[in-house]
Simulated scan of single mutants.
Amino acid sequence: MSSVWTAIGSIPWFAWIAIVAILSGSVAGIFNSWFRHRERMAMIHQGMHPDSGDGKSSVPEL
């Protein structure tokens, strides 16, 4: 277990910025996919066709 902490401790501070950015982007992407899926399922449940383009998404396109 000490070798893991040694490896983590040997990572320079500027690499942590990249690691945090990658992890944050991944979590944001997963959350966005999950939210769009729930929104799509709600539209189907209400009898709307999600691919029709009539309804506006509450999530802005990036």
Results as ranks from 00 to 15, higher is better:
S26K: 08
P12L: 01
A21H: 03
M43W: 06
I19F: 03
A28L: 03
W34D: 14
P50F: 00
M48Q: 07
F35K: 14
F14D: 08
W34E: 13
I19G: 01
A42K: 15
G9S: 03
R36V: 01
H49A: 12
W16M: 00
M48V: 08
F35W: 13
D51V: 06
G25H: 09
R36I: 02
A15V: 06
I44L: 09
S26N: 14
A18C: 07
W16P: 00
A42F: 10
D51C: 04
S33A: 12
V27C: 11
I19Q: 01
H45R: 12
S33G: 15
Q46I: 09
Q46M: 14
H49L: 13
R40Q: 08
I11R: 04
I44C: 07
S33T: 10
R40T: 13
R40P: 00
S33W: 09
I17C: 08
M48R: 07
L23C: 15
M43L: 14
S26A: 10
W13V: 04
W34A: 09
G47P: 02
M48Y: 12
I17Q: 13
I22G: 11
Q46T: 11
H49R: 11
G29K: 04
H37T: 08
M41E: 10
I17K: 14
E39W: 06
I17H: 08
H45D: 10
A18R: 06
W13R: 02
F31G: 07
M48E: 06
I11K: 05
I11D: 05
M43F: 11
I30N: 15
Q46L: 11
G47Q: 04
S24N: 07
A15R: 11
W34V: 10
I17T: 10
H49V: 07
A21C: 13
A21F: 01
A18Y: 08
R40W: 08
W34K: 13
H37K: 14
F31Q: 13
V20Y: 05
W13C: 02
S10N: 04
F14R: 11
I30G: 08
G25M: 14
A21N: 08
N32T: 07
S24R: 11
S10D: 04
I22A: 12
I44Y: 03
P12S: 05
R40Y: 06
S10V: 00
A28S: 03
M41Q: 07
G25E: 10
S26Q: 11
P12V: 02
W16S: 01
R36C: 00
A15K: 06
G29S: 04
G9K: 01
M41R: 07
S24C: 07
R36F: 07
R40M: 08
H37G: 09
H45V: 15
S26H: 11
I30H: 15
W13P: 04
G47I: 03
E39I: 03
S33P: 05
A28R: 01
H49K: 12
D51H: 10
G29Y: 06
M43D: 09
I17V: 09
Q46A: 15
G47E: 03
D51F: 06
H37R: 15
R36A: 05
A42N: 14
V27E: 11
G47C: 05
M48N: 11
M48T: 05
L23Y: 06
V27T: 14
F31R: 10
I22N: 13
A21T: 05
G25K: 07
H49N: 14
G9A: 04
S24G: 07
S10E: 00
A42D: 11
G9I: 00
F35A: 15
F14E: 11
P12F: 01
I30E: 15
